[in-house]
Measured scan of single mutants.
Amino acid sequence: EAHAAIDTFTKYLDIDEDFATVLVEEGFSTLEELAYVPMKELLEIEGLDEPTVEALRERAKNALATIAQ
């Protein structure tokens, strides 16, 4: 499951495998979680700032909209 989540994140969020791995290690496994989890939870991840989190959430929401079509 972790590998599938990493693949999904790299494909749809335009991030590298290392960043995707950090997200999975922090407990995220779906685009929905990244799109809708409280921003505070993402900001608790070391190295993430508000602009990065906002961009990540926007990419996740856009990916979900694209997949739904």
Rank of each mutant, 00 (worst) to 15 (best):
T21E: 07
G47Q: 05
D14F: 14
I45T: 03
A4Q: 13
I45D: 01
E26N: 15
A5I: 15
E17A: 12
K11H: 09
S29H: 13
F19T: 09
D7E: 15
D49T: 08
L13W: 01
E17I: 14
E41N: 12
D7L: 15
R57Q: 15
E26M: 15
F9G: 00
K40V: 09
E46N: 11
E41V: 15
E17Q: 11
L23S: 00
M39P: 07
D16A: 08
T8Y: 11
A5F: 07
E17L: 12
V37W: 10
E25W: 10
L64D: 00
D18H: 14
E58V: 11
L13P: 00
A4F: 11
E33W: 05
V24P: 00
Y36A: 10
G47P: 03
T66K: 11
T66H: 11
G47E: 04
D49N: 08
M39Q: 07
Y12D: 02
D18E: 13
I6T: 04
A2Q: 14
H3P: 07
N62L: 14
K11F: 13
E44P: 05
V37R: 15
A20I: 03
T10N: 03
A60H: 01
D16L: 06
E44G: 13
I15T: 02
A55C: 09
D18Q: 12
Y36N: 13
A35C: 06
E17P: 10
E17T: 09
T52E: 06
L13N: 00
E54G: 08
A2E: 10
V37P: 05
P51D: 12
T21F: 12
A55D: 08
K61D: 02
I15M: 05
V22W: 15
G27D: 01
D49V: 04
E50K: 12
D14C: 14
Y36K: 10
K11T: 07
E25C: 13
I6A: 05
Y12T: 04
L43S: 05
D18R: 13
I45N: 03
V24S: 04
F9R: 01
T8F: 10
V24R: 05
A20W: 02
R57N: 03
I15S: 01
A2S: 11
P51T: 11
A5K: 07
Y36H: 11
T52G: 08
T52V: 08
A65Y: 08
G47T: 05
Y12N: 03
L56D: 00
E33N: 06
A2Y: 15
E33L: 10
K61N: 06
E33Q: 14
A63L: 04
R57W: 04
V24Y: 14
E54T: 15
T21S: 10
A68E: 09
T66I: 14
S29F: 15
M39G: 05
P51F: 13
L48G: 02
L31H: 00
E32T: 07
D49C: 04
E32N: 07
V53E: 01
L34G: 01
L31M: 04
I15K: 00
G27C: 03
M39T: 11
I45W: 04
L56H: 00
S29N: 10
D14M: 14
P51S: 13
A65W: 08
N62P: 00
V24Q: 04
L23Q: 00
I6P: 02
K61L: 13
E17C: 08
Q69D: 10
E25V: 11
T30L: 05
L42G: 03
E41K: 14
E32L: 10
P51W: 13
N62V: 12
L31K: 01
Y12S: 03
M39A: 09
D18G: 13
I67D: 05
H3D: 09
I45F: 04
L13G: 01
V37Y: 08
A68C: 08
L48V: 08
A2D: 09
L64C: 02
D16E: 08
E41W: 13
D49G: 04
S29C: 08
Q69T: 09
A55Y: 10
E1Y: 06
E46P: 14
P51L: 11
L43P: 04
R59A: 09
E58F: 08
H3Q: 15
F9E: 00
E32C: 11
A55G: 07
D14S: 11
L23C: 01
A60T: 03
A68G: 10
L23N: 00
I6V: 09
P38C: 09
E26F: 15
K40A: 12
T52L: 10
D14K: 11
K11D: 03
V24K: 04
I45C: 03
P38G: 09
A63K: 03
D49L: 05
A65I: 12
A5V: 12
D18P: 08
E58R: 15
V22Y: 15
G27N: 02
E1I: 11
G47F: 07
E25N: 15
F28E: 00
V53Q: 02
D18V: 13
A65N: 10
K11N: 06
F19K: 04
Q69V: 08
F19Q: 06
L23W: 02
R57L: 10
T66W: 10
L56R: 00
A63G: 05
A20T: 01
P51Y: 11
K61E: 05
I6H: 04
L43K: 05
E54Y: 08
L48K: 02
P51R: 14
I45Q: 02
V24I: 11
L13H: 00
M39F: 08
A63C: 04
M39V: 12
A35Y: 06
P38N: 11
I15V: 09
P38M: 07
T8E: 06
D49M: 04
Y36P: 01
E1A: 13
L64W: 04
A60M: 02
T30C: 05
L48R: 02
E17M: 10
A35N: 03
L42C: 03
V37S: 14
G47C: 06
I15E: 00
A55R: 14
L31G: 01
D7M: 15
V37K: 13
Q69R: 09
E50A: 12
R57I: 13
L13R: 00
T8D: 06
Y36W: 10
E46F: 15
H3W: 13
V37T: 13
M39E: 06
V37I: 09
K61A: 08
I15C: 03
L48D: 01
Y12R: 02
V53P: 02
N62A: 14
I67A: 06
D7N: 13
K40M: 09
E17G: 07
H3C: 10
I6Y: 04
L23H: 00
A2F: 14
G47I: 06
A4K: 14
Q69H: 09
L34A: 00
I15Q: 01
R59W: 06
F28G: 00
G27Q: 02
A2V: 11
L34T: 01
E58A: 10
E50T: 09
F19N: 02
R59Q: 07
E1G: 12
A55S: 08
L64N: 02
E17Y: 13
F19Y: 06
L43D: 02
P51Q: 14
E58S: 08
T52R: 09
A5G: 05
F28N: 01
K61M: 10
K40H: 13
A60Y: 02
T30F: 04
Y12H: 06
G47H: 05
Y12W: 15
T8W: 10
A20N: 01
L48E: 02
L64K: 02
L43R: 06
R59V: 04
H3V: 11
P38D: 14
M39I: 13
F19H: 03
A63S: 04
E58L: 14
